[in-house]
Design a protein around this nucleic acid. Structure first.
Length: 283
DNA sequence: GATGAGCGG
């Protein structure tokens, strides 16, 4: 009988024939209670004769070999948990289905001033991940979707509006980062988040696009009317083809207005474009 | 005729 597969690691390095497969398999006997182990194997010697080799060795006892003193000590501990009714020293391994609750010391809603009078179960659980940074409402909405964003006070604790030289002279804002929108000391500017949100919403819907109109094409078409903050062409996820409509967002509403007036009804790629203000996105 | 994906501290 020839072995069907020989792993390369088992191949003989010299060029002599490997006839080991003709030999009886290696036998291991023991170890017995005295730790005596016997290994019986067969080999061909240099003359090509079959020889039997018996190796006898003593193995150290398991506890000495593998267990530390502390580990041996632990075996005499009383059982606990699901194993509480087991005898000491028995059943060294046991799978437990006991539920372990982990403490989260800094979980949202744990701060004293946050919790006072709160009967909101969401606030009690400590499992709420969604906490609006703008209004502080928990489990309701993300900061970017805060319905109270426009009402909330600007965080003047973080950013002092520099009034050109007065603050610099007193050194109050020395080294503090001031975002570009807050530079220049004008108090007339409306709050930054407010403006940015409006810019995102100057959304123009373009329909009756040919199937091979892509976003770069749309940008090229609308770019002459003003700064475009986003172009989007709806793609059918199944087929990967255009669904024939898209959106273009303008930084300023006036530019969007002009684009609508000029491009609505415009012939593009053998089709008549329809261009108008987009309805606010559903959800 | 037609109204978008993903992103979480």
């Amino acid at each position: 009988m020839q072995p069907s597969k020989v792993r390369w690691g088992e191949l003989e390095e010299d060029d002599g024939e490997d006839l080991d497969f003709l030999l009886p398999p290696k036998q291991v006997i023991g170890p017995n209670e005295n730790g005596i182990k016997k290994v019986v194997e067969f080999k061909f010697n240099d003359d090509g004769n079959k020889v039997k080799i018996t190796t006898t060795s003593r193995v150290r006892k398991l506890a000495n070999a593998l267990l530390s003193k502390r580990a041996v000590e632990r075996r005499s501990w009383p059982k606990f948990g699901d194993a509480v009714h087991e005898d000491v020293g028995s059943r060294l391994t046991m799978v437990s289905t006991e539920e372990i609750l982990l403490e989260r010391p800094r979980a949202p809603g744990t701060k004293q001033e946050d919790n006072k009078g709160s009967l909101d179960p969401l606030a009690q659980g400590g499992a709420v991940l969604m906490v609006c940074r703008s209004c502080g409402k928990k489990g309701d909405h993300w900061t970017s979707r805060c319905p109270y964003k426009d009402l909330s006070q600007p965080t003047d604790t973080f950013v002092d509006k520099p009034t050109t030289d007065s603050n610099a002279a007193t050194g109050v804002t020395k080294g503090a980062y001031v975002p570009p929108s807050m530079r220049g000391g004008t108090t007339e500017r409306s709050s930054g988040s407010d403006m940015r949100r409006r810019n995102e919403e100057n959304s123009v819907r373009v329909t009756n696009l040919s199937e091979d109109t892509r976003e770069p094409d749309l940008l090229e078409l609308f770019r002459p009317f003003g700064n475009v903050s986003r172009v989007y062409v709806a793609i059918d996820q199944k087929t990967g083809t255009s669904r024939g409509f898209g959106f273009v967002n303008f930084v300023s509403r006036e530019d969007g207005e002009r684009a609508i007036n000029k491009l609505n009804g415009y012939g593009y790629d053998n089709l008549i474009l329809r261009v108008e203000w987009a309805a606010p996105r559903a959800n």
